[in-house]
Design a protein around this nucleic acid. Structure first.
Lengths: 142, 142
DNA sequence: ATTACTGTAACTAGAATTGTTACACCATAC
DNA sequence: GTATGGTGTAACAATTCTAGTTACAGTAAT
């Protein structure tokens, strides 16, 4: 059960909120979102909690509580969602420190770190080209 | 122990092979590579095995055995290494099938798949811009 | 006050990665 | 041919991550 579906879950929740909003339902409970994603409401609350901390959704407490988008779906990009859910970066360095007596072992970590930073930036740039509105539109097309 | 260091380990091994080759040592054993990476020789044999299957290194068996680069380090890119070690893709879809009665649940998987394909392509394009020779040069600079 | 839902802790289950031991197999050199 | 040194791989332990689940205190509308 170890594939990273956090970005998927969060994006699904946001798209569903966007559609509900368009249909005039201004808030959804975690139960209602969980029914579409087909998972446990706690998973949704955790995910929406990340998005709330990033300012992408708002929550209402008390009776009649629930979640809404904090801004129009056109202005929420998957890059913002990616940053909000803070999944692990795709590549990690050595678990144990390499042999510093070896010239490669000494210099490879900063060298690879620089590469990995560029790779993550490339990912983020690509994610920035797609909005929740785009995802919703593509989803409804199928 | 769950961060993905496969690309790091493989790249380190290749850079070390490249340097050894430059110094006139045409083959290295998995023990010698493991001494620089500071890990178990079996990890290195597994990693170099992946690279061998991808045609990036060659192996010699029997007495005097060991590993060599199959081509010049300038012609081995990190994209080839990434493809060879076949780590998990950065994003996964839902673990459980979404609710197909929901319009979002019905269409979101193909919509997100298309996004994730583009993201992985962006990653691969960026990885293709760096060769083992580049990594070795950067490492020796530090 | 009641009510309905959020926020979060605590725990289980499953999977992936790394590390480790062990050993069969192989090709080279003598 | 035989000894030798290293590969290839299976099997297993330890660690860590994700997802899922239950439970319950906190909170704000009505």
């Amino acid at each position: 059960m170890a594939a990273n579906s956090r970005l998927t879950i969060a994006t699904h929740a946001l798209a569903w909120l966007a559609l509900a909003q368009r249909r005039g339902q201004e808030v959804l409970t975690s139960d209602q979102v969980a029914a579409s994603v087909n998972t446990n409401p706690v998973i949704i609350r955790r995910s929406l909690g990340d998005l709330r901390r990033a300012g992408l959704v708002t929550v209402r407490h008390g009776a009649g509580a629930g979640w809404s988008l904090a801004r129009p779906p056109e202005e929420i990009t998957l890059r913002q969602v990616y940053d909000a859910v803070a999944a692990e970066p795709p590549f990690g360095l050595h678990h144990t420190e390499p042999n510093l007596k070896c010239p490669v072992g000494r210099g490879i970590r900063p060298a690879l770190s620089a590469v990995y930073v560029r790779v993550e930036q490339a990912m983020q740039q690509e994610l920035a080209t797609t909005s929740i509105a785009d995802v919703l539109r593509e989803s409804l097309m199928r």
